[in-house]
Design a protein around this nucleic acid. Structure first.
Lengths: 252, 252
DNA sequence: GATTACGTTTCATAATGTGAAACATGAACG
DNA sequence: CGTTCATGTTTCACATTATGAAACGTAATC
């Protein structure tokens, strides 16, 4: 096989060659052809293909010929960044900012953290402000708790074990039971609160943004000094999140 | 890791788990998270990801976070059968049949053979007729020779070595040099002939059908008893192939 | 400057993937 | 209908690869 472009794992090279060989064909392809095209022994090609079939990367038609499989479509759908969530969100964020007079943030989940990707701020001197690109652990942010709710209790326990739920303030959930309870209640009511859990003096109200598939793709939140935060804003945050989701194709 | 659904090749299982973990995230994902999520040792995950990066299945953003890569989109595009070439081709095949009064075939390449996937026949008692689903080796068909031309001389030599160019009639190319010469000439002029190479008494004129990417996705040919075949039909076959290609998005 | 965390590389070795050979199955042929 | 052939599938001894512990590199944090 083409050794001059081998990578650290030979099996991955072989797999890639097989998938590329399949991609070059219209319709099904025989084992014999794939082995010949990739220079692999037929029994080797057979086993690699069997594994790929099991994971959906390859399929066999009714005559036993090999084809590229459906899981590639599923993964490719995830590759698509699609339309920029920020651009879609920004008008609604500005509307929400004008309604409440406080900072509005858009975040996306990256691993164990929410990352601030967009922000609109009010024209007032004392305001909460996060730097674009900065991050916060899931469990200390309103929308991060909602993301954990999306992932489920088991994944949340894994998260807690992995991160050990570091405390940012005295109000941060350090106990998995309390965290799960907060998450459950927040998920049920469709919004979450950050009661000085990330930073003393700062409170947030957050809701999830969903795409056409229903997946939670971003978090929308209002951040304000605690003494200025108003629960009346909840419906406004939810309305803005609903509008953004609608623009992304989400249909309730 | 999840041993109860392991497949014949452990590395493929591990790779699939990593790709699925990436698919579950919005935005980039850290090595640490991926290793934890899949239960792999970080150095193992690192090497598998390095191989996937080299093949385009994974990419890294400017901060080093891992993302699903562009090659998945490329492969997914191939998964898509897209619109049925047969349905698109049929009206033009009927037009061509009406022009020339002989059988018109549509074939697709499957490995070392052309497979007959659509056929329209004239209303005459003596006519050439291939069964849908039947196959013929590339080198004995007009459009098969054009497909070999698309693949190049090296691939054609590999094909010749693999199949040993079995003779179907005395007119079949049994010599690689003669075959390459015929292929070169055919490719240059944009159509190919089958001069009783597949079956005595039968002659064909064929041209390639291309899709939006320019790839040859099918072959279109007129088959007739040799004494009825007319070289005037060449431009009609090319015109029909051009029209079908246009419907598939091909722009010359 | 010291410490920490994450990513990357090294290297001995255990475990996996390999491929030759055997077997299974179906199609083709006489 | 029996034989032959081709392709696909399975087995198994073992060579080679992939692994993971440990070390190293780098950048961020305190």
């Amino acid at each position: 096989m083409n050794e001059d472009k081998s990578s650290p794992i030979q099996v991955i090279d072989r797999m890639a060659a097989l998938l590329d060989a399949l991609a070059e064909q219209d319709g099904g392809t025989s084992l014999k052809f794939l082995a010949a095209d990739t220079g692999l022994h037929p029994s080797t090609a057979f086993r690699i293909l069997a594994s790929l079939i099991q994971h959906g990367f390859v399929a066999r038609d009714e005559t036993g010929l090999y084809l590229l499989g459906p899981h590639l479509l599923q993964l490719a759908a995830k590759v698509r960044v699609g339309l920029d969530v920020r651009a879609v969100a920004r008008p609604e964020m500005e509307w929400l900012r004008d309604q409440v007079g406080e900072t509005v943030n858009l975040t996306v989940r990256q691993g164990d953290e929410m990352v601030y990707v967009e922000r609109v701020t009010p024209n007032r001197m004392m305001r909460v402000e996060q730097l674009i690109g900065s991050r916060a652990p899931l469990h200390v942010t309103a929308v991060g708790k909602l993301m954990l709710g999306e992932a489920g209790a088991a994944a949340t326990r894994d998260y807690a074990k992995r991160t050990r739920l570091p405390a940012y303030t005295a109000n941060t959930h350090h106990d998995i039971k309390a965290l799960l309870e907060d998450i459950g209640a927040s998920t049920a009511r469709g919004y979450a609160l950050d009661d000085e859990e990330a930073e003393l003096g700062v409170g947030c109200i957050g809701a999830l943004v969903r795409d056409a598939s229903g997946a939670a793709v971003a978090g929308l939140s209002v951040s304000a000094p605690m003494e200025r935060r108003q629960m009346e804003w909840v419906t406004l945050v939810q309305e803005a999140a609903r509008r953004i989701s609608g623009r992304l194709g989400f249909a309730e």
